[in-house]
Design a protein around this nucleic acid. Sequence first.
DNA 1: TGATCATATTGACAATGATCTATATGAAGT
DNA 2: ACTTCATATAGATCATTGTCAATATGATCA
Lengths: 99, 99
Amino acid sequence: MTISEISKICKALGEENRVKIVKLLTGGERCACDLLKDLNITQPTLSHHMKVLSECDLIITRREGKWSYYSLDCETLTEFRGFIAGLDCNKSRRRCSCR
Amino acid sequence: MTISEISKICKALGEENRVKIVKLLTGGERCACDLLKDLNITQPTLSHHMKVLSECDLIITRREGKWSYYSLDCETLTEFRGFIAGLDCNKSRRRCSCR
DNA sequence: TGATCATATTGACAATGATCTATATGAAGT
DNA sequence: ACTTCATATAGATCATTGTCAATATGATCA
């Protein structure tokens, strides 16, 4: 996973409602109108957010009749978790090389 | 750590250069002019990015003479890692409650 | 004190994004 | 066929953001 992909995912999660959506989906897949009940936004706005989350492969959409079911994309999420897990702080001091 | 704080951190990481900066800081603290060498941006832009990273408490600034040294804020990073680690996918299907 | 260096701030601009209303699409039921 | 329902798309608006050139700040050194 490239830095570009990482930052794209982070950008997607840089909006509160989208973090809430992802958090909700950790409980299993949900249809749009169910998600809508837990968020204070209109239906088109939710649709927009789902598109953003799809475009960075954080979620998968499954169509069933007139309902769209959304769920987390395990593969992307696993890679992303791995990257974030690798960001550990390091207290070592490195001399500034600017003369 | 609230959803609002999480999304603020993600928004900060939603920019490629800032992900690179955080990644660089996992190697230990660095001064601005050293970071600048690894990025294709001007000094004011770097300064702006460092401010954004500071404002969500991802980094700590230490002033030493004319140099500013930046390092990762372990506490914030640990909490953030914890949140992301808790986002696991769940393949269970939940019926849509929309009639 | 005057020059130089590292970093921060200001101000401007173009691009992006979150949100809404209105409308389209497409499936299901009558 | 017509209506209804769930979701998507279009278009508009307002706020935010990444970037740079110019300038300010504040430390160090001659």
